[in-house]
Amino acid sequence: MSGADVPVLELERLSLAYGETVVVRDVSLKVRAGEVYAVMGPNGAGKTTLLNGIVGMASRVEGRIVFDGEPLERINPQRAAKRRIAYVPQGRQLFPYASGRMNLWSGGYGRRDRGRLEKDIDDFIAAWPVAARVAKRNAEVMSGGEQQVIAIGRGALSKPRLMLIDEPSLGLAPILVQEVFKLIADVASDASHAGAAVVLVEQNVEAALSVADHVCILSGGQVVHQGARGDLTAADIGDMYLH
């Protein structure tokens, strides 16, 4: 296999738990650089747990997580960031009393090219009008959509190999959902660093399908469907939510 063919992330029969409660069972998937893998399913399906497990915020019960060809052991969010795994959790988790620009800067905390980082922040702000609007505004007073753009931008500025994004459309107006998903597609295809592999947890089926290359449907913590985007329509996926 060539370097490009090696998946950035590979989950092998992964089971995850919080304490004694097993929430995700036997999940396997592969994501390559430049690809978006959408994980969908009803509430309580284990989607967020799957992302938490990758960064060590849920316990691994069985299976393996392989990142860039190596098993990911003894991981926690800080070590994950160091390995260039960017996590955009549900609720965004921005720094509330820091400006949009400072939140973006924080994404590059682990980068050594400080001068380049400032330029990348300028470029990001120039490219995304929403970010320009809130560059000087504290996160606590931003709208949900503005926060989401900054949160994804923060992840992107770490120049990630892998980006995990949880429910980015939650609570956003449709116009901002479009903006946010354009940004997600941009992160995956970013030519400046060969693109990131993206695992996207999303309940908005149409929005997710607009950017996804692969789809996985979880229900009750287990995979009920997995395949390429074209395998299923939004209506098929909706049916799976109901059954």
Binding site: A81, Q93, S106
Partner: peptide, 14 residues
């Protein structure tokens, strides 16, 4: 930043 949110700080690698 760690003073504002320790979880967010860990997520960005502080």
């Amino acid at each position: 930043l760690a003073g504002q949110d320790r979880v967010a700080a860990a997520i960005v690698g502080i």
